[in-house]
Simulated scan of single mutants.
Amino acid sequence: MTTSKDVVLGVLALQGAFREHLEYFRKVIESHPQEYSQYNFRFIEVKTEEQLNSCDSLVIPGGESTSISLIAERTHLLQPLMDFVKNEQKSIWGTCAGLIFLSKQLKNGKVGQKLLGGLNVEVARNAFGRQIDSFESKLDFSTFIRDCTDFPTVFIRAPVITNVLHDGVTEAKEGEEIIYSANDYNNKAPIEILYSLKNYHNIDHDLIVAVRQGRRLGTSFHPELATDDYRFHKWYIDEFVLKGL
């Protein structure tokens, strides 16, 4: 008799679109019962250190990055999150505000904002403009998700990755303010640029909107808002959560 393996996938539930992520993960398992029959999945909201420590994987959702970090600090969850980031047996995915929170350094951040330092990247907030400048676009992710040529991405006051930090943090230029993570963790895995927007509004350089570094994933967009399309969440389960368990 085969015993099912328990897998706990948590979504940080301090602020933002955490319920949508949980719903999409459940849809993945419900729609592929045979494929995941050897696993006993639990999808949980994470609001406490105890809940966090029970997780094999964590998603940090979109929302308001400053609020997420301040609430984490106020509820004494910031240091446990930094400790979780250091555990390379755990997988982590940050979307939009979650990408900001997961980064090593941040341009145009707000006073008091904290970073977890799990991805060796620099991020800029609200890179596409205000809420009114939010947009949707079908993108071709088939280079890393099989046959996924038309995924409906949603960008809402989204950040972009402005620098890949191969050799440690960068110094701020004159007149530039940068927030640095206080976490002493250094992710030594190579950084892969998964997707860049090209020629966006005639900008003469690519805008990096998805990266991975080992078992850490960061996306500028909101896959959990792609109506009834949970291919990205399935890929995360297969590629990050289950590999290495």
Rank of each mutant, 00 (worst) to 15 (best):
Val7Phe: 10
Glu20Ala: 15
Tyr24Gln: 14
Phe25Asn: 10
Phe25Cys: 05
Lys27Cys: 03
Gln34His: 13
Glu35Cys: 01
Tyr39Asn: 11
Phe41Gly: 11
Thr48Arg: 01
Glu49Asp: 14
Gln51Leu: 15
Leu52His: 12
Asp56Asn: 15
Pro61Gly: 10
Gly63Lys: 07
Ile68Glu: 05
Ile68Tyr: 06
Leu70His: 09
Arg74Tyr: 12
Arg74Met: 07
Gln79Thr: 14
Phe84His: 12
Glu88Ser: 14
Ile100Leu: 07
Phe101Asn: 07
Phe101Trp: 00
Ser103Phe: 03
Gln105Tyr: 06
Lys114Asp: 06
Gly118Glu: 06
Asn120His: 03
Gly129Arg: 13
Gly129Ile: 06
Arg130Thr: 00
Phe135Trp: 09
Ser137Phe: 00
Lys138Ala: 12
Asp140Ile: 01
Phe141Gln: 02
Phe141Glu: 02
Ile145Phe: 09
Thr149Asp: 01
Asp150Ile: 01
Phe151Gly: 05
Phe151Trp: 09
Pro159Met: 01
Val160Ser: 04
Asn163Glu: 14
Val164Met: 08
Thr170Trp: 00
Lys173Phe: 00
Tyr180Gly: 04
Asn186Trp: 08
Ala189Phe: 12
Pro190Asn: 11
Glu192Trp: 02
Leu194Val: 02
Leu194Gln: 08
Leu197Pro: 02
Asn199Ala: 13
Tyr200Arg: 05
Asn202Phe: 06
His205Cys: 06
Gly218His: 08
Gly218Thr: 03
Gly218Val: 06
Thr219Met: 10
His222Ser: 07
Leu225Cys: 07
Asp229His: 13
Asp229Gly: 06
Tyr230Ser: 09
Lys234Met: 07
Val241Ala: 09
Val241Tyr: 06
Gly244Cys: 11
